[in-house]
């Protein structure tokens, strides 16, 4: 019902190659997140799937049928935009009804579907308001409602939560995840926020400069990053990297340790990096300390909330040897 396959898909803007040819399979009912830094081509990739951009090469298959040259409306996909893209002069009811009206549905059918969508998104009380009279979260829900009524084979989300404040973002994240559980429809979600990617995805696609760096389940990417880029991008706070002599001891060009896999002690420790504590960030459950290690640079370590280290203290950091990531000169994992 919602299988999407990209085969050698590429995109050029004039002479600039934004997306080199790439292949990707999205299974039916899967929640796939495209994640990457700004300008990595993730939104362009989504727009290619939506049909809002023309492919420069390769094919897009939806449910096994070639859809490369199919106009956007005929692809049976629904998209939620970053700016929500609600129609400001229409009421919420008319906004949600718009795709049905364009499809020529009967008035009864439109009414029924709009009511059902509004009820499932808690929008029933707002149906006669205009988008300008709604809060950010409500607008977001209207945009989702407009997508749901079309009963698409797949939903496309283009950074839908980036205009919301932090608390609302957590709520909407849950709501979208719940929506996916109840609809079981394929969802493709674009974000630059790796927390969103980790929490929502069945499968994460990490993109960098238009190339796919790694595809996998969130924990797989966390445990076994294929290269330096993925290792640095997935996980928060980001992984510490050590080059040179410190890395050579482990037989690698670069070694990476996540802050949560560093043991911090105030006593001298064998085979450990010695450093001085800089800023500590107290989050209650955890404390992140920034340690300046001579010859290595700044490192970030997580310690339990109780351990008392202060500014300027000397500490020893030792990595958990099982959780150490080793990389060769090309930045690939060993």
């Amino acid at each position: 019902m919602g299988r999407i396959a990209l085969k050698g898909l590429s995109k050029n803007f004039n002479d600039v190659e934004v997306i080199p040819p790439l292949d990707l399979e999205i299974a039916d009912g899967e929640f796939v997140v495209f994640v990457g830094p700004s300008g990595c081509g993730k939104s362009t990739l989504l727009r290619l799937i939506a049909g809002l951009e023309d492919a420069s090469g390769g094919n897009i298959e939806i449910d096994g049928q070639d859809a490369t040259n199919t106009p956007p409306a005929k692809r049976r996909l629904a998209m939620v935009f970053q700016s929500y893209a609600l129609y400001p002069h229409m009421t919420v009811r008319k906004n949600i009804a718009f795709p049905l009206k364009m499809a020529g549905a009967s008035r009864d059918e439109i009414d029924r579907k709009v009511q059902a969508a509004a009820a499932s998104l808690n929008l029933t009380d707002y149906l006669d308001r205009r988008p300008g009279q709604l809060s950010g979260g409500q607008r977001q829900r209207v945009a989702i409602g407009r997508a749901i009524v079309r009963e698409p084979v797949a939903f496309l989300f283009d950074e839908p939560l980036s205009n919301l404040d932090a608390a609302l973002r957590v709520n909407m994240r849950l709501e979208i995840s719940e929506l996916h559980q109840s609809l079981k429809t394929t969802m493709v979600y674009v974000t630059h926020d790796q927390v969103e990617a980790m929490t929502m995805a069945d499968k994460i696609v990490v993109l960098n400069a238009g190339r796919i760096e790694q595809v996998g389940a969130p924990l797989e990417l966390y445990r076994h990053p294929r290269n330096l880029f993925v290792a640095g991008f997935i996980g928060s706070p980001r992984m510490n990297f050590v080059n040179g002599a410190g890395a050579a001891a482990y037989g690698a060009q670069t070694v990476g340790v996540r802050p949560e896999h560093l043991r911090v002690s105030t006593q001298q420790d064998e085979g450990a990096w010695r450093g001085r504590v800089g800023v500590s960030e107290h989050l209650g459950s955890d404390t992140f300390v920034h340690v300046h290690v001579d010859g290595v640079g700044a490192m970030n370590a997580r310690i339990g909330g109780e351990m008392g280290v202060g500014y300027g203290d000397d500490v020893w950091l030792s990595p958990d040897p099982d959780k150490l990531h080793r990389f060769d000169a090309d930045g690939m994992a060993l």
């Binding site: 049909g51 956007p72 996909l77 700016s83 893209a85 609600l86 795709p99 364009m102």
Partner: peptide
């Protein structure tokens, strides 16, 4: 006019 609005309408089948 917001181009995303036009694109949304295009995807909505207009």
């Amino acid at each position: 006019l917001d181009s995303e609005q036009q694109e949304a309408a295009e995807m909505d089948g207009a």
